[in-house]
Design a protein around this nucleic acid. Structure first.
Lengths: 167, 167
DNA sequence: ATCGTTGGTTCCGTTTCCGAACCCTAGAAG
DNA sequence: CTTCTAGGGTTCGGAAACGGAACCAACGAT
């Protein structure tokens, strides 16, 4: 599978990866959520090659995740801001941050802690079902073909592998 | 920044990326959550080069995300199973799946829908604070230095970028 | 005139990725 | 006791992505 084919796959995970499934892109987005907006700020904070940074920012703008906003005429200056679509990636970042806190942190703990403004507690989150409000774990979820399913029932159950014969 | 340096960064997101921040790894994990366990099954479903698959599986085992379990002697056969650490990645996958459903699906809808077993509804989830139970969005969260913070306050606020001078 | 700032683009050498082909172990079959 | 098949990899050469450094350009300041 080619990188560019990912967004054609009948799988929402693959399609999401076509936008954010890159070593640098998620780090750029992390900084966006920390209110970093300028080309040079990204460069300094990430130590990324400018070439690569320009490419990733362009792709994120094309994908509708970031918006390039003029914030000053004369001299003309633009900044990159998260769109609604970009802001909606927060649950992804948050889940990754918390998993990293739990399993990858130094012995003394993570470098950054997040606090929930509403209640003041150090933030730990978990996904809940918007219908019933109950927590959701892998075991609580079943999958079935959706409206956009072609012959893609491959995504519904473990394939019975048969090498070099008809599936 | 080098790929191998990611897990040394004082940032949980970077460290998480050092494990799952790869084009193929998340697709492999998606299949793991669909109960795919055998080398050949991954290969068939993903169309991945065997070499790359072997490498990714090895890294996931080394990272403690998958476990290589002997399920049959004579002939010796092993399968890959999610560990607790791996299962705890579900919120990451789920958030990515739902974002893809929302923004990247075909007009007729996503190929797969997930159903919450407990209530029977088509699953949509959102992260909530485990302390107060309220929903968490990017705007509800503040960041501060944690116990593992060195001089890494860079992660707390947008750096004021100063090119080629002392920070 | 020329210097500094911001935000890039071009070049080129090095890694990393990928597809195809090959290899090894072990039972089954003749 | 040789061959066949299945599972699970490893090797190799070309393609793509990455990283560093240099170059470019618009525009204001000195």
């Amino acid at each position: 599978m080619r990188w560019e084919d990912l967004d054609q796959q009948p799988c929402s995970l693959a399609r999401t990866l076509s936008v954010i499934g890159d070593r640098w892109t998620l780090l750029i987005l992390r900084d966006c959520f920390l209110k970093v907006r300028r080309f040079e700020s990204f460069e300094l904070r990430l130590g990324i090659a400018r070439h690569i940074l320009a490419d990733r920012l362009k792709k994120l703008v094309e994908a509708g995740v970031l918006d390039k906003v003029l914030y000053q005429e004369r001299p003309r200056r633009e900044e990159y801001r998260l769109t609604r679509k970009g802001l909606d990636l927060y649950p992804v970042l948050l889940a990754m941050l918390e998993w990293g806190d739990a399993y990858m942190a130094d012995p003394e703990g993570p470098a950054v802690i997040r606090r929930h403004k509403k209640c003041g507690a150090v933030l730990a989150s978990r996904p809940v079902c918007t219908s019933c409000g109950e927590a959701v774990t892998a075991h609580d979820v079943s999958v079935e073909a959706g409206p956009g399913a072609g012959d893609a029932d491959i995504y519904l159950h473990a394939a019975t592998a048969v090498r070099s014969s008809s599936a």
